[in-house]
Write a protein that binds this DNA or RNA. Structure first.
Lengths: 288, 288
DNA sequence: GCACAGCGATACCGCACGGGTATCAGCCGT
DNA sequence: ACGGCTGATACCCGTGCGGTATCGCTGTGC
């Protein structure tokens, strides 16, 4: 360290600190989350702001608000931290002798596609063990980005495939799931407009990525089991890909919704992946 | 810092150190490049290895070699460091009041497309200033990845578009450029095989990303000016997209090479880009 | 209207860690 | 066998980071 010029580059620790503060919007709670005291955290953020020459937070006497630049940094810092974590994890995994693949997929979705894929790949010469990680909605992208998974099954337009390489596997229409015996249950088809105006069966509210639920009339649901139970009880309806019909019992009825957006299941993997196992798995998948 | 457990996460400084060593394959030179002494660098790498629980380098008494895990980390660390740099740069730019776009493109390539794009976008309502950065082959991806550019024109299959969102703009065939008056100059077409066996006119050798040149018979070239001069002198030939014919004078002749891979010019931008300016520019581009 | 609660900023201190110099230890080529 | 490379080790020093104590501010409740 020759002198006190601000030529230091940003460290991941500072990014972690900033993300904590930006998420909590409260220095004290953020410090607690980081298991440190509040003053050094305040100073670290000040240092970061000075170094970037940018005001990241507006300090109102009662808490904190993100500036425009701050919300840019929040988004960018998250992906940068994911990239660092991914570097760490992939390096560790590269050093273990059992390579293996980790495949992330949504619980309950694309069951048939998944088993065909796993069987097909296992029959390939040179196939390695595949560990399947079932995760909540929107979680797969995170796993793929931070190196916990090597490959994932995603569904457009629900999941965002930005930043990954993908191959389309399967496209399907959506259906509305109703309680069996509902007056509309034997319709040949319904429109989105009709479904959203079913006031007796509101659409459920899924949690956002941060765990909070959007406001609205429908019940809050966390997974498909809850969802289908609520539908069977006549408290909700839902628009889902038609392949989910395979998991339904006779307490549910389905009606096609032709104008709902088609759902495309894609296989996704991080770019620059040099793994032949990933390439083999993708090749198997596209042949199905 | 409660105790001496190895629960610290990887810092960007350590990644920078490792990349320097992995690129130089020599602690002394790497330390010089980092403007620091060699011993602390050695220790930092040891710490990193201990923390990851992985051997990254084989220390032969005469220099250093990357392990399997080491080369994984080299690749991953580069993208992670680019992501951190991008976070820094984009945050700084978000704080400046003049938004502006930076567009990276290869020098000399797609001149006509570029001017149509710039004119078309400038006519859009809400258009912001566009700064054009001309850069060497393969450099655009770097600029896009580390936040120095917001959008780039790339050419498949020369450039890799992995990790970016892209839209195809234009596909063209390739032609071979010969000195005017060459015996083959008035052929209606040639095959790749014919071109590569022209021993009197070897294909030139472009520098790799690290600046080194591959071995071979042809002359080394750094840019298109050098290339076309060498061709005019009867020392080389080259296969280039046909749009480059517009920049040629009468000292060159071109012959189509139908079996050369078609070149697709795409517009690329980093995923998660929330900038409306980028979206507008892309929309303009796809309408051309 | 004033005291208090809650927030982030500041002051000050101690230590651990990052960096420097000097030196050691192996391995090659001559 | 011995210099001349390499990277590793020993030891020291300065500073930068984190800790505690406290301040300054502001909105709030009685």
């Amino acid at each position: 360290m020759v002198n006190a010029r601000y030529d230091h580059a940003v460290e991941t620790r500072e990014l972690r600190y900033f993300v904590a503060v930006a998420e909590e919007l409260h220095f004290g709670r953020a410090a607690q989350r980081l298991t440190m005291a509040q003053p050094p955290l305040s100073r670290a953020i000040q240092r970061l702001e000075r170094r970037l020459g940018v005001v990241l937070l507006h300090r109102n006497a009662r808490g904190v608000a993100l500036t425009e630049a701050g919300s840019v940094l929040l988004r960018e810092a998250r992906t940068a931290l994911d990239a660092v974590e991914a570097a760490e994890r992939r390096t560790r995994r590269a050093a273990t002798e059992t390579p293996g693949l980790v495949l992330a997929t949504k619980a309950g979705a694309s069951r048939e596609l998944l088993s065909k894929l796993l069987d097909g790949y296992a029959a390939e010469p040179g196939a390695v063990a595949v560990e399947v990680v079932l995760c909540g909605p929107g979680e797969q992208e995170r796993l793929l980005r931070d190196g916990r998974a090597d490959v994932a099954l995603l569904q457009r337009p629900f999941d965002t495939t930005a930043g990954f390489d993908t191959e389309d596997l399967h496209t399907e229409q959506q259906v509305v799931v109703l309680p069996a015996g509902h007056p509309l249950a034997d319709r040949t088809h319904m429109s989105m407009a009709e479904v959203t105006t079913l006031t007796d069966l509101p659409l459920p509210r899924w949690p956002r990525r941060d765990g909070s639920h959007p406001g609205g009339p429908g019940p809050q649901v966390r997974d498909h089991t809850q969802l289908f139970q609520l539908i069977a009880l006549g408290r909700a309806c839902a628009i889902v890909p038609e392949s989910l019909r395979a998991t339904l019992r006779d307490e549910h009825a389905t009606v096609p919704v032709p104008d709902a957006p088609a759902v495309t299941t894609v296989i996704a993997w991080p770019p620059h992946s040099r793994s032949t196992a990933v390439a083999d798995l993708v090749r198997t998948a596209t042949r199905l």
